[in-house]
């Protein structure tokens, strides 16, 4: 099932289908190895749901939850 990464529940593994963020963020994410096909899992949420910590490729990456809206994932 396709959905936006910001609405995936914590601890739920999913695979990135498409990254439709602006070019800058897209390339930043590529540097960390977050590309279509990457299997990841939202691990923690900061207070107010403002930030989300993604776990993938053995590391934790913190992003703003609102930026995750443009990342489509397959659950």
């Amino acid at each position: 099932m396709l959905m936006n990464l910001d609405s995936v529940r914590l601890g739920c593994r999913c695979a990135v289908a498409a990254v439709d963020t602006d070019e800058g963020l897209k390339r930043r994410l590529e540097d960390f190895g977050l590309v279509p096909g990457t299997v990841l899992c939202p691990e923690y949420r900061s207070p107010g749901g403002h930030g989300t910590v993604l776990g993938f490729r053995g590391t934790l990456l913190a992003l703003r939850t609102r930026d995750l809206k443009r990342i489509r994932v397959r659950v």
Binding site: T21, V53, D67
Partner: peptide, 8 residues
């Protein structure tokens, strides 16, 4: 506003 990407 720039985006926030930070490794923990």
């Amino acid at each position: 506003q720039s985006t926030f990407v930070m490794e923990l």
